[in-house]
Design a protein around this nucleic acid. Sequence first.
DNA 1: AACGCGATCTTTCCATCGTCAAGACCTTGC
DNA 2: GCAAGGTCTTGACGATGGAAAGATCGCGTT
Lengths: 191, 191
Amino acid sequence: MVHCVNASYHHGDLRRALIEAAVAAVGEVGVGSLSLRAVAKRAGVSHAAPAHHFGDKAGLLTAVAAEGHDRFADALERAWQTTGDFVEVGVAYVRFAIDHRPYFEIMFRPELLHTDDPELDRASRRSREMLHRGTDGPGPGEAANGYSTAALAAWSVVHGFAELLLAGNFDPAIDDDPEGVLREVVRQLRF
Amino acid sequence: MVHCVNASYHHGDLRRALIEAAVAAVGEVGVGSLSLRAVAKRAGVSHAAPAHHFGDKAGLLTAVAAEGHDRFADALERAWQTTGDFVEVGVAYVRFAIDHRPYFEIMFRPELLHTDDPELDRASRRSREMLHRGTDGPGPGEAANGYSTAALAAWSVVHGFAELLLAGNFDPAIDDDPEGVLREVVRQLRF
DNA sequence: AACGCGATCTTTCCATCGTCAAGACCTTGC
DNA sequence: GCAAGGTCTTGACGATGGAAAGATCGCGTT
């Protein structure tokens, strides 16, 4: 039993193919118009194939979100270790939202996901930890809730910027150099 | 011709009833699971009735979003004129998101709306202007794009806080006193 | 070497959805 | 009154997500 964990019989690696197809589809039509059947067609399988690997639509999106959080954590960690500047972690946050929009569109939408999924939990916990690097630690910031005020402020500002930008709520002029604008915005924070 | 603008024949004021039914439905199941047919049933009309008043689903959501932006602008203006403190405008921003969640869930999601609708344009422009009160004006903040850096930072931080809070991405402990936490978060901004 | 089991995928079916077209009803203006 | 047009209903269609049942295939066992 358990012939092939995560492996392949008929298709090769359908699980992987479906995730990639989902990401591509979300990139084209948005998560709101994502159709399981379109994803299946894109991967060259029948419309019911995804259900076997992911249970349901939320299951597929959960797998995408988990992968997204992993990549996200990687990007944030890279930024932190490269520059040592927490502002640059914030820039990386928004950079990821822009460059990997399909992932980002899904990652922070629990209503689309199976929030009890252990893989998602592990990955999102990892990306969450990366966010606290730099703001947490020495500073005071009451930890009555799980976060320091500085971490909450930083998270809120970069997340809000990313959401408003991606949704198109900003002046289009910002699209020319979102990084530059964001850098100035983040500098408005006291650390 | 044009017997009754916005008025009532068979039903009373179906347009109004449908908007209220939509708000109630979004409050219960979220905008993602909103069904036009459920809204119609809630208003006591046939499943195709909404189409006549709003064209399509996006049309109904557009009307809801426009009404939301009007109420939103009212709330922000009230906060500004009452306190004169821009921090309190930010608090009112998040307060609105919490207290009128169904509206807020829709207002900043252009992909769900008819963004060319004149009513929506007027209302959202109004709420946008309220946001710039207090940050704009005297300060420098390059206006290369439409906003000052301070306004962008303030908007981003309150919007991000609201989104993360509503989506449930924060520690549940914050739900006890989101206003208090937000006030400290906003104070992390230099004005 | 043959069997059987379980994993993988397909096919078929169903309820629900948004939208469209056609018709019924009702109010208003003439 | 009567035509006209706004209001709403009915019925239908294609698309969707999901459930159920069957077909196909590879592996471990004997």
